[in-house]
């Protein structure tokens, strides 16, 4: 199968260094303190944040910082072939930990000692890049819940197929077996808070892929920032704090 045509087009018609269409909406759920839907092409992820609130299990309480709980679940209809996967399957649990680790570096946990923040991520449609989309959705939900953040963490994946570095792999490209590098970046402080690549790859290729993924992250971050600003402006206008 050909992943990049001689004209330089990918299966879904994108150029190698092109992101899929991004979309997001904030505060979509009633009972959550903050929530967001983040969409990258056909990948669609919902995140909900509850808290900061009292720690439920007393001995998990940290005197000097907040603890973050994270749960990643996939809807049964989210994948191409229907599959009922519980929240407790191994892939979901691994992803919960990965997302939690990235969020712990993003939230200013030291400002909220003795509290707990629950982050729930629900994948509605899966088409590659669910872990980075999950991080993006979770960060937007945290921001809309008013949790203090060090920086916006924006995630993006990049891979390498047939001699091309490709940005933001979809499911078909993801399952082609090439290297896949998922990262999340703090764009202002320029720090990586998630880095996963599980493949053998020459150093210089890795560098090219990593740089591409970082550029992707910056683009995603500026999109997220713009949407957050628009949302906040709308809220401020509704309260009469700002005039149109």
């Amino acid at each position: 199968m050909e992943y990049v045509t001689p004209e330089g087009l990918r299966i879904d018609g994108r150029r190698p260094k092109e992101l899929r269409r991004l979309d997001c909406s904030l505060d979509v759920l009633q009972s959550a303190d903050g929530s967001a839907v983040f969409q990258m092409g056909n990948t669609k992820v919902l995140a909900a944040v509850f808290g900061p609130h009292e720690v439920e299990v007393r001995n998990q309480m940290k005197e000097d910082k907040a603890i973050i709980k994270c749960e990643y679940a996939m809807a049964a209809f989210s994948t191409g072939e229907r599959r009922k996967r519980g929240k407790s399957d191994r892939r979901s649990q691994e992803l919960s930990l990965v997302i939690k680790a990235a969020l712990e570096q993003t939230v200013m946990v030291e400002l909220l000692p003795r509290t707990q923040i629950d982050v729930y991520v629900q994948v509605l449609q899966a088409d590659g890049g669910t872990r980075v989309a999950a991080i993006n959705a979770a960060v937007l939900a945290l921001a809309s819940a008013g949790v203090p953040l060090r920086d916006l963490a924006a995630g993006c994946a990049a891979g390498y197929l047939e001699g091309h570095s490709l940005l933001d792999l979809n499911f078909q490209e993801d399952s082609a077996g090439g290297p896949d590098c998922s990262i999340a970046l703090h764009p202002n402080s320029d720090r990586l808070v998630l880095l996963q690549m599980d493949s053998r790859l020459p150093m210089d290729t890795f560098e090219a892929v990593l740089n591409l993924a970082q550029d992707g992250c910056r683009a995603v971050a500026s999109f997220m920032r713009q949407r957050l600003l628009e949302h906040t402006r709308k809220l401020a206008m509704a309260r009469g704090a700002v005039r149109a």
Partner: peptide
């Protein structure tokens, strides 16, 4: 038919 209570609805649906 299956019905799943998403944790996004409320923390009480976390886990099982």
């Amino acid at each position: 038919a299956t019905v799943e209570m998403s944790s996004c609805a409320s923390p009480e649906y976390e886990g099982r």
